[in-house]
């Protein structure tokens, strides 16, 4: 009975990992299989041969680079604006005292509840009237709404971990409040700001509903919209779709490798308190 315990432990861990990793492994290897092997009725669990043919065809048949560029532009703008706006707002909500401060915090929290679809219809009409419908600007504006209020919440744990004494010491030395924020506070809370930026990038990179309605012309389309179109075709080009999936998933995975640790810190600290 005693030596069975470690076995059960490792079996359970392996089961959990496989459950979440197997589908991703499958798409990854399928993107390198030549078409006959890919579509074979007896799938191979370890690929027999290797090809980059799907990646070549992806760039030839789909305007992939343009979509990639558009997505990158929208997602990085969203991340930048979110990080700035949320950092300022979080500093204000957690470190300043003024009437209406609690109300602010609650307002940001309520944004959790807003159905995206509720926001979409009025924004669509508003942007149409302002003449910015069908532009990356409209998309960035909408995406910041999805990411920034939530970010204030993630930042809470990071901001509270910066000791007040550090700020007070700087004030004694004659630094201004703005200097304190930029020179002392933001560097100390940097992991939190990074986590917020990465989270905004991920959300924006992945977002489909706003991206498919607020942007109409092909030249501004983002990756999810561009690829979803091919998912709706009668005969799906599976090789191309696999290669596209790997390339779309790549930037979020790289971003997560860089700052994922901080994101998880922010996520867990925020929820447990």
């Amino acid at each position: 009975m005693k030596h069975l315990k470690p076995i059960a432990k490792y079996l359970s861990v392996i089961a959990v990992i496989s459950f979440f990793a197997a589908p991703m492994y499958w798409v990854f290897i399928c993107s390198f299989k030549p078409t006959p092997e890919l579509l074979s009725l007896k799938p191979t669990f370890v690929p027999h041969s290797f090809t980059l043919e799907h990646y070549r065809r992806l760039f030839k048949q789909v305007d992939f680079l343009r979509y990639y560029y558009n997505s990158f532009l929208v997602a990085s703008s969203t991340a930048l604006i979110t990080a700035l706006a949320a950092t300022f707002a979080a500093y204000s909500v957690y470190r300043c005292r003024y009437p209406g401060r609690r109300f602010m915090f609650r307002l940001f929290l309520v944004s959790y509840i807003f159905p995206k679809i509720l926001v979409l219809i009025p924004l669509y009409i508003l942007f149409a009237r302002l003449g910015i419908l069908d532009s990356p600007l409209a998309l960035v504006a909408a995406h910041v709404t999805l990411t920034a209020p939530f970010s204030v919440w993630i930042l809470r744990a990071f901001f509270e971990s910066v000791p007040r004494e550090v700020e007070e010491a700087a004030l004694v030395d004659g630094a201004t409040r703005i200097q304190i924020i930029f020179r002392i506070f933001i560097p100390l809370a940097a992991p939190g700001v990074a986590a917020v930026g990465i989270n905004a990038f991920l959300m924006s990179w992945s977002e489909y509903l706003f991206a498919s309605t607020l942007v109409i012309s092909d030249q501004f389309k983002t990756l999810p919209v561009g690829m979803a179109y091919f998912l709706q075709q009668y005969a799906i080009e599976w090789g191309i779709m696999m290669a596209g999936s790997v390339l779309i998933a790549l930037p979020p995975i790289i971003g997560f490798a860089i700052a994922g640790k901080y994101f998880i810190q922010g996520l867990t600290a925020g929820s447990i308190k």
Binding site: P23, W205, Y208, L223, M241, M242, P252
Partner: peptide, 13 residues
């Protein structure tokens, strides 16, 4: 990681 995957990749996958 499954949460990090973009939704369209999730759908294709």
């Amino acid at each position: 990681l499954p949460w990090v995957l973009p939704t369209v990749v999730l759908a294709i996958m």
